[in-house]
Structures are given as C-alpha cells and as structure tokens.
C-alpha cells in the first residue's frame, strides 16, 4: 500500500528527470555538431581555396623542378622542398634522440627532488615560448656564438629546440601510461632499469612517443619565424650538395653547411609580392606543404600499425 503510493508519487517525477536529461543530451549534441561543422568548414574553405588558387601551378611539373625566379610562371619550389626535407632530417635526427632520452631520464631515472621539479616546470614552459624567441636564441648562440652560419644545420638545430619540449612531454606521458604490472614483471625476472626500459617499457610506449614526435615535427615543418630570424635566404638558385655521392664513403655532410630556404619562407616571400601571379605560386606551395605534413602523418600511422604487429 505504502509502496504503491510512493511509486505513484515519484513516478511522474522520474519521467521528468529522464526527459530533462534527454533534452540536455540533445542540446549538447547539437552544440557539438555545429561547432564541428563551423571548424571543419573553415578548414575545408582554406584547403579548397589554396587548391583552387594554386591549381594552374600545381598541374605544372616545372613548378616542382624550377628554382625561384623573377617571372612568376617560371618560378618553382625545388630549393624550398629540398631545403624543408633536409632541415626536417636534421631536426628529427637531433630532437628525437634528445627528447626521448630526456623523457626517459626524467620519468625513470631522475630522483624526485626540487631540481627535477624545476626541470619539469621549465620543460613545460618551454613548450609555450613563442617560436621567434627560439630564432633570436639561435641567432645569438648558434650563429654569433658558435659561428655555424645561416645553414641547414642551424635551422635544424633551432627547430629541434622548438619541438624538444613536445617530444619530452609526450615521451613521459607514454612511459607513464605503461602499467606497473609490466615493469614488475621485468624487474621480477632480474632485469635492471635499463633492460626494463629498453626491452619492455620503450617498445610498449613507442606508439605514444611516435605520435608526440609527429605532432612536434608537423609543427616544425610549418615554422617560418625562427628560420627567418636566423637569416635563411628567400631567393636561392642552387641546391645543397647531395648527401649521397658516387665515391666512398658514399655519404657526405657538406649539405649541413649549405645555405637554404624552406617551404614556409618561400610561401611568405611570394605572398608578400604585389603581383597576383606570385600569389598563385604561394597557394600551390601551401598545398604542397600540407601534403608533406599529411605524408609525415601517414608514415607515422603506418609505422605505428607495423610496430604494433611486429613483435618478434
């Protein structure tokens, strides 16, 4: 009797609550979808605008093989894309081992004291430093201090510095995500710290580390400001010496000391010209730059997929 009264009293109320919750869900979903549509259409507008604007040049093979020129229709991006690839090689070659190493050290080896805390806070803060500041640092330190000149090496170094915090933080997070179980299993077998890290923790964390690395490299590939600051050329009519050669030792590093330009600088240069024809070149360069980023992400996805499957 009492039960029946109670359920009668509370039932309409419950229905009200359920209805209200459902309404809130619908409203939130609606807001979410509209935000998504706005964001995606803005992005799509940019991409489509670039593709349409750059189409005549994108379809011309000379565009990829020619050096920059005063004549917009003869101008190409060969020095820019070669420069970007070489600079990214240097950046990745420096930032990945340093960043992963620092992340492993901070997460696995560093003693928990105020020095470590201080380093951690600074690493996180470095991620937020404007890129032009890194450019100034490189100008003062690498160029005037070490005398490295306006070279591919200097550009690679400054971009490596720029993305180092991203790689360190993502390495740490990936390592922290490895369950304690797995470490105890390794330690339980008598593994020392380095064996545990090298054989079990890093392989399990590598897909997270890879993601962070790609996010960092994708940021670096689009940076113009720090590279302009160190004095990269905007007009260059030759390529750096090839890293590969026909005679032993088949590989050389002269290209590291070569002047260069990169895609974002080339693009910036063309956008700032008054002639509309150069703007077409800039749009086409933008499309290629995005494709390069996309290709890098593609490689990362492929690597991640294969690393996950390949387990010996």
């Amino acid at each position: 009797m009492l039960n029946a009264e109670m359920s009668q009293a509370t039932l309409p109320n419950l229905t009200g609550i359920v209805d209200a919750n459902r309404r809130t869900d619908l409203v939130m979903a609606g807001i979410g979808i509209s935000v998504l549509i706005i964001a995606m259409s803005l992005l799509a507008a940019v991409v489509i605008d670039l593709i349409v604007g750059g189409w005549p040049r994108l379809m011309n093979p000379d565009f990829y093989l020619n050096f920059p020129s005063r004549h917009p229709l003869k101008a190409g991006i060969v020095s820019a894309w070669v420069g970007t690839i070489l600079v990214m090689l240097v950046t990745a070659g420096i930032a990945i081992p340093l960043g992963v190493g620092a992340g492993v050290y901070l997460e696995e080896y560093a003693a928990r004291n105020w020095i470590t805390d201080f380093i951690e806070i600074n690493v996180s803060n470095l991620a937020g430093v404007p890129s032009i500041i890194y450019g100034l640092l490189a100008l003062g330190l690498f160029i005037h201090g070490f005398g490295l000149g306006e070279t591919i090496l200097t550009a690679g170094l400054v971009l490596a510095l720029l993305i180092l915090p991203v790689i360190i933080v993502s390495t740490r997070e990936a390592i922290r995500g490895i369950p304690l179980d797995l470490r105890e299993a390794a330690y339980g077998l008598g593994a020392d710290k380095w064996q545990t890290v090298r054989l079990y923790v890093l392989p399990a964390a590598r897909s997270g580390i890879l993601t962070g690395t790609i996010v960092g490299l994708a940021r670096a590939i689009g940076e113009a400001a720090p590279v302009i600051t160190i004095g990269a050329l905007t007009f260059i009519a030759f390529l750096p010496p090839s890293p590969l050669q026909a005679s032993p030792p088949f590989i050389n590093f002269e290209w590291l000391e070569s002047p260069f330009t990169i895609m974002p600088i080339q693009m910036f240069n063309w956008v700032s010209r008054p002639q509309a024809e150069f703007h077409i070149n800039a749009a086409a360069t933008g499309v290629i730059l995005m494709l390069m980023t996309l290709a890098m992400n593609g490689i990362a996805i492929w690597l991640r997929y294969h690393l996950r499957r390949q387990i010996r």
Binding site: L182, A185, I311
Partner: peptide, 11 residues
C-alpha cells in the same frame, strides 16, 4: 615471481 594478474610482455 608470478603476480596476481597475468602480466605477459607485449611480445
């Protein structure tokens, strides 16, 4: 040592 939860390596 063998632990409470099975903890094989991802290998």
């Amino acid at each position: 040592m063998v632990f409470q939860k099975p903890n094989p390596f991802p290998k």
